[in-house]
Amino acid sequence: MTDLALRRPVGSGTGTVSGPRRRLIGLVVALAVLLGLLVASMMIGSTAIAPTVVWDALFHPSNDIDQFAIRDFRLPRTIVGLVVGTALGVSGALIQALTRNPLADAGILGLNAGASFAVTVAVGLLGVRDIQGYMWFAFAGALIVTLMVLVLGSNRRGQSPVMMVLAGLCVGSVLSGAGSALELTNPDAFDAMRSWNAGSIVSRPLDMLWPTLPFFAIALLLAFAVSGPLNAMALGDELAVAQGVRLVRTRILAIIALTLLAGGATAIAGPISFVGLMVPHVARWIVGPDQRWIFAYSALLAPILLLASDILGRVVMRPGEIPVGIVTSFVGAPVLIALVRQKKASGL
């Protein structure tokens, strides 16, 4: 615990950065809120279903038509929201630490553009029409683009964050231009893509989620493994090397982890962009610059934002719904703006 205190940033000087004890309490509170939202997500929907039916649906399943609504619709979207939210939060924390840019998210590496382009090709040229079909295209697109960015953004001495961001912008621009060209000349593709682009966690059956879980698990382990070295790198590459951090290896592991997380989340839910940017940023305001705490908080706060938005999206236009990707920024942005108005300036 003492080294956490030592790592307190020079000049961060903000009142909200708390001691390890209070951070731990905060973590427990966040966990409780998340659990509460998980329950709420099972209870709230366009049709009123009694809590007893919800309970029975999970623990005494029968062929009652209301129970199907719980098991087939609310349970999967809740679990998907939890997994996707966590993945987006941690991937955002990773990219912010890696680029030392507190306002980056995984999209900055061209990842979303890659996923989007791959899905557009699948829809427009190959005639794929269902979400499960899109999934692997999106995942592959994200992985390939990251690989391209890695190659393009490296020189003999390794990767610099600035070069990778430029490479991401480069690959992202070309792909988004090509994607738009495909969409605007193919009405069928445009029609399908505008729905996928909104980002949603509905109608993703759980058997779509299972094959991605090993990737997420590996990526989360990697993320927490590199959090220490990333802490050291935050103080400057030279200092980190002096502390025995292997820069290239850390960067590559971090990129693998964030690609799997953000790519997997996008593959399942479509592009949900704001969560990965805002949550780690807010987490940093709460816990200070220690990446381990930022990762832990992001892993909890991101699904909180996502599930709360999803529940809100079911309620505001009842019996209709708004896709979660639309709602998150309307829930998150006011919070972010209010926070930044309250706080003294804080960078990294």
Binding site: T47, P319, G320
Partner: peptide, 11 residues
């Protein structure tokens, strides 16, 4: 047209 979530199929 009115857009409804799958839950409403039961109705």
């Amino acid at each position: 047209y009115t857009s409804l979530p799958f839950e409403q199929i039961a109705e």
